[in-house]
């Protein structure tokens, strides 16, 4: 993987592993599956590509991989315009698109051999070695000779990841890689992604699982109904989240009154608690004011919204399938 690292280091600042400008795809008239996407995936990032099912993530990935043609806009992968120069870019890209797909009556190892055989840019002399290494990396050595049709969903998913790791890659585009895995498998795949990222591989991870993004990603982009709503580093996104205060008390009305007097916005009353946005107020002074006003304070907390709250505030709705 040192190869990938040195390549990443050689890039000019500002260059991107994936860059799209105004990328759009419409199916039929007027229905935009992807609408003017400006995506920037920095080299070395673990880029969480987040959005509900049906929001256009997979369509975007298919355009990056040259499977479907964009209606409008441009895309670059590893600095090469796609699909024009896919032949140059894609050997360095490992991809998992919309779940695993293999020949059911071939064994796992034979399926990987076939994938390697169709790649003209690999060395046939090292094929066996690379197939075993890839199987080993995803923990499938024991099932290597089993027919693919007998694999469980989790094993299929692992085999697809092994396929993406058949040769050193600079970029991995993984669409829902933990789909169908048990908790143990999920943890293994996440730690595998972390290892690869540490080796300098850029990872673009499409998911609808917020927890996955929180655990493994350095950057995040949120897509909703074909549009990009936000993209930034995870740290920046968290910092942009507005903290709130929560006062637990037997007299929430009185507490709310005090918070209003202190000039806090969005004051709300709930059974047994009052909440508001912290804004520029100092939490210590708020506690002091509450106590002096005789509010029986049972608990006081500064609450940072988690990713899910942020997501709801960005999309204005819950994390459901968008039409």
């Amino acid at each position: 993987m040192t190869k990938a690292t040195s390549v990443a280091a050689a890039r000019e600042p500002g260059s991107r592993a994936v860059r799209t400008r105004g990328l759009s795809k419409s199916y039929g008239k007027g229905v935009l599956a992807v609408d003017g996407l400006d995506l920037d995936v920095p080299y070395g990032a673990v880029f969480g590509f987040l959005g509900p099912n049906g929001c256009g993530k997979t369509t975007t990935i298919r355009m990056l991989l040259g499977l479907i043609a964009a209606t409008d806009g441009t895309a670059e992968v590893l600095g090469e315009p796609v699909p024009e120069r896919s032949a140059v870019a894609l050997p360095r890209v490992g991809a998992l698109v919309e779940g695993p797909a293999f020949h059911p009556y071939l064994s796992g190892a034979d399926n990987l051999r076939r994938l390697d055989a169709v790649d003209r840019t690999t060395d046939p002399a090292t094929a066996e070695e690379r197939v075993s290494a890839a199987l080993d990396r995803v923990g499938l050595v024991a099932a290597a000779r089993k027919r693919y049709r007998q694999y469980s969903l989790g094993m299929k998913q692992r085999l697809a990841i092994a396929g993406a790791l058949l040769r050193p890659r600079e970029l991995l585009i993984l669409d829902e890689p933990t789909n169908g895995l048990d908790p143990q498998g999920t943890r293994e795949v996440r730690s595998l992604i972390a290892q690869l990222a540490a080796d300098g591989v850029t990872v673009m991870l499409s998911t609808h699982l917020l927890s996955e993004v929180e655990q493994v990603c350095s950057h995040v982009a949120v897509m909703h109904k074909g549009k990009l709503i936000t993209q930034s580093s995870l740290a920046d996104l968290r910092a942009s989240a507005v903290p709130g205060v929560r006062v637990e008390t037997a007299s929430p009305e009185a507490a709310a009154e005090v918070l209003r007097e202190e000039g806090l916005a969005d004051v709300a009353v709930a059974p047994g608690a009052a909440t508001a946005l912290l804004g520029g107020a100092e939490p210590e002074k708020l506690v002091d004011a509450l106590v002096r006003a005789g509010v029986p304070v049972r608990g006081f907390a500064v609450v940072r919204p988690d990713l899910e709250d942020l997501f709801v505030s960005l999309t204005g709705e819950g994390f459901d399938v968008s039409g």
């Binding site: 040259g66 499977l67 894609l90 050997p91 890209v93 919309e98 797909a101 169709v118």
Partner: peptide
Amino acid sequence: NIGTLRYLLTTPVG
């Protein structure tokens, strides 16, 4: 039908 076409094309096979 079994989805292997997308993996052939992304390998890439022209």
